[in-house]
Design a protein around this nucleic acid. Structure first.
Lengths: 167, 167
DNA sequence: CTGGATATGTCAGCATTGTTGACATAAATG
DNA sequence: CATTTATGTCAACAATGCTGACATATCCAG
């Protein structure tokens, strides 16, 4: 007696959901997750690329271009296209570095920080609702799961990024 | 004494990670998750859009265009651009519907099914590795978490999609 | 049977966001 | 002072989304 139609392809513990379901759930979950932000960004004529830059600048005030490129894993040309708009519209400011004046250190303006906060809260609420539906262990379990889904090689870097205190 | 720098903004149980970390972990995890497939697709000159179509056709052989559009949430123009290439290159076949001859029912060819299987296994392996790192409860917990992250309104539809047996 | 609804295809144009390659400038550094 | 580094910019292109308009074939109700 089979619980799932794909049972014979599973190669996982009996009774467990096939991995293909996990793949699809992650796809659908991520789509809705970014959809939250998309709707809010539309009002400012911003896209997802702007969101990512704003988010990471807000998260790490004074971040330099090179570090931002490293986190986002895009080219400087792609970054500059959206960064220019964030600067023009007054959501982000750049100041020359103190130790190294070649660097342009990025900061959110009040407007920028407000939008970043609103976006984060929107997405945080989705997590909160999800965690509230399950047992207490859901949040730490989900956190460990998400971390384990990241390439092992870059995991130390991500962990460091995530908990490094603001300068 | 604070465990996390963002402790004061948290609004979650003490000791729990701030939500902003969850947001970033999901971003990084998803990026690596789709990266697996990207590298394999490159060899066939396919992109992510091709991947999604191939995946869902393989998952639901005989799916009609309208249903595919509904799952992917893209326009028929966007779909047709990549579907045409999948048909041309012999990864997918279309057959007129039996009951309704207007419908074009889509099926993977052997080649297409082989690629779809390879892509799914690549991504499934990432889940397996992640689950292997945590306790037994990790997989069901992650599954419940992902489902809970999906808009409540579309959840019944997703659940039905995910476990509906192939025709 | 006929007329309207439905399923699908197609053409044209445009927006966003990624890429490569080449070249420019200013500041740091040995 | 010569070189390296951090950054900016121009141009072209690719992938993948979108809208709007129009075409065709088929189904279905009256």
């Amino acid at each position: 007696m089979l619980t799932y139609p794909e049972e014979r392809d599973r190669r996982v513990a009996p009774g467990a959901a096939p991995m293909v379901e996990m793949i699809e759930l992650l796809f659908f979950a991520y789509r809705d997750f970014v959809g939250d932000a998309d709707r809010l960004l539309e009002r400012y004529k911003f896209g997802r690329a702007h969101h990512r830059v704003l988010h990471f600048v807000n998260r790490r005030p004074g971040i330099a271009i090179a570090e931002l490129l490293d986190v986002l894993r895009i080219t400087k040309q792609s970054l500059n296209r959206v960064l220019k708009e964030l600067l023009d519209k007054g959501f982000v400011e750049a100041h020359a570095g103190v130790a190294d004046r070649r660097q342009r250190l990025l900061f959110c303006t009040d407007r920028g920080a407000a939008l970043a906060r609103e976006l984060t809260e929107l997405q945080a609420r989705r997590f909160e609702r999800a965690f509230a539906e399950g047992p207490d262990a859901t949040a730490p379990c989900a956190r460990a799961f998400l971390l384990a889904m990241i390439d092992a090689r870059e995991r130390p870097k991500v962990e460091q990024w995530i908990r490094r205190p603001a300068p």
